[in-house]
């Protein structure tokens, strides 16, 4: 028997390193920040020249909404975003698969991809305008190219990481090449493709604004640019908030897609 006087409880030293999401914290922090901002503006701690009050920005949003231009800007931007992103992603998945499956494609296309990926696509915008015109073409092309390369890299990485044992299993059961690609390689690479989609969607939004800052009449980027050149900071805030909400929506959608397509991960 141990001496009950001299004994100590074994000190607990595990735990931690496992952050969990807590509900309602995020909206609360957001609300507190806006309230603080509004309060600062009203009392004069934050000068109106430096940052307009949230209420002023909201008024600017109502003005925009009442003028009827809100949907025009948003739909124009959405069209460019969806069009450029989906074609860029589709082509990216295709080329990524080729690089993942064929030696010749890997040796020829992979160096090209590595060379083109780091080029800021915004720097190429003048070229795109010459090639595809000042209209929709150059804007869609900027987004397309911007989303294409990260998708290629995510896809071929995903294909490379599909367990070779599963492929060997497919071969051992005499499955056809096409069946192996469709039923083993593609679903196996899907998690990587979806996390690539998350990254390329953010890149697409950044490029959208950049492209709309040159020669666009409508679009969130054009709205932000116009507000900026007039120093209408309240409108600027509205534009930036719209972009942020757009980004949140896109990441929510991809989250939904991940949940639906990858429920087998358990």
């Amino acid at each position: 028997m141990s001496d009950p006087v001299n004994r100590k409880k074994v000190p607990f030293r595990g735990g931690g390193f496992k952050p969990r999401p807590i509900r309602f914290v995020a909206p609360f922090v957001f609300l507190a920040l806006v309230l603080f901002w509004e309060f600062g503006s009203r009392t004069g701690i934050i000068s109106n020249l430096v940052l307009p009050a949230p209420s002023e920005a909201f008024q600017a949003f109502l003005d925009l909404y009442n003028s009827g231009l809100f949907w025009k800007h948003v739909s124009t931007s959405l069209y460019r975003l969806v069009f450029g992103w989906s074609i860029g992603t589709a082509l990216g998945i295709l080329v990524g698969l080729l690089i993942g499956l064929f030696s010749l494609a890997r040796s020829s296309l992979l160096p090209l991809t590595s060379a083109f990926f780091p080029i800021p696509k915004i720097a190429l915008l003048p070229l795109f305008i010459i090639w595809f015109g000042i209209g929709e073409g150059s804007k869609v092309a900027t987004i397309l190219f911007g989303t294409f390369f990260p998708t290629v890299i995510a896809t071929y990485g995903g294909v490379d990481n599909v367990e070779r044992g599963l492929v060997r299993m497919g071969q051992s059961f005499g499955m056809s090449w096409l069946s192996i690609v469709r039923k083993i390689i593609l679903p196996g690479a899907l998690p990587a493709i979806l996390s690539g989609a998350r990254i390329s969607a953010s890149i697409a939004i950044i490029l959208l604004v950049a492209a709309e800052m040159i020669g666009a009449e409508y679009g969130i980027g054009a709205y932000v640019l116009m507000a900026g050149s007039l120093f209408a900071t309240d409108q600027l805030i509205v534009g930036v908030a719209m972009l942020s909400i757009l980004g949140l929506c896109v990441s929510w959608l991809i989250g939904k897609a991940e949940k639906a397509l990858l429920n087998w991960r358990g």
Partner: peptide
């Protein structure tokens, strides 16, 4: 196979 080689998504 030793590692079963089951498709986790099926």
């Amino acid at each position: 196979f030793q590692d079963f080689a089951l498709l986790p998504w099926r």
